[in-house]
Computed example of a mutant assay.
Amino acid sequence: MTPSELRAFCLEFNDAAEEFPFGPETSVFKVAGKLFALSALDGEPLTVNLKCEPEMAVQLRAEHPAIVPGWHMNKRHWNTVTVGQLPDRLVRELIEDSYDLVVAGLPKAVRLRLDRA
Rank of each mutant, 00 (worst) to 15 (best):
M1K: 11
T2D: 10
S4N: 12
S4T: 12
S4L: 11
S4P: 01
S4H: 14
E5V: 04
R7L: 07
A8R: 15
F9A: 05
C10A: 10
C10M: 09
L11C: 04
L11H: 06
E12P: 01
E12Y: 00
E12R: 15
F13D: 00
N14G: 05
N14Y: 04
D15Y: 06
A16Q: 04
A17R: 13
A17E: 13
E19Y: 01
F20V: 02
F20R: 13
P21W: 11
P21G: 04
G23H: 06
P24T: 04
E25F: 00
F29C: 08
K30Y: 03
K30P: 01
V31S: 12
V31W: 07
V31H: 12
A32Q: 09
A32E: 08
A32C: 10
A32S: 14
G33V: 02
K34E: 03
K34M: 11
K34Y: 06
K34G: 07
F36G: 03
A37H: 05
A37Q: 07
A37P: 04
L38C: 13
L38I: 09
L38H: 03
S39D: 00
D42H: 13
E44T: 05
E44K: 14
P45G: 01
L46S: 05
L46Y: 08
T47A: 14
V48I: 13
V48E: 03
L50T: 00
L50A: 10
K51Q: 08
P54N: 05
P54T: 01
P54G: 05
P54M: 09
M56I: 05
A57T: 03
V58Y: 03
Q59I: 06
L60T: 01
L60Q: 02
L60D: 03
R61A: 06
A62H: 11
A62M: 10
H64K: 13
H64L: 03
A66Q: 05
V68E: 03
V68P: 01
W71M: 13
H72W: 02
H72L: 06
M73Q: 07
N74L: 10
N74Y: 12
H77L: 14
H77P: 01
H77W: 12
W78V: 05
N79A: 12
N79L: 12
T82C: 09
T82H: 06
T82S: 10
T82N: 08
V83T: 00
V83H: 03
V83I: 02
V83S: 04
V83N: 01
G84W: 08
G84D: 11
L86V: 02
L86H: 02
L86N: 06
P87L: 12
P87T: 03
P87W: 12
D88M: 06
R89V: 11
L90W: 08
L90N: 10
R92G: 10
E93L: 08
E93Q: 12
L94M: 09
I95A: 09
D97Q: 15
D97Y: 11
D97M: 14
D100F: 13
V102I: 15
V102F: 10
V103M: 07
V103E: 02
V103G: 05
A104I: 02
A104E: 10
L106R: 13
P107F: 07
P107H: 11
K108S: 14
K108D: 00
K108C: 11
A109C: 09
R111E: 00
L112W: 11
L114R: 11
L114C: 10
L114P: 02
D115S: 15
A117S: 11
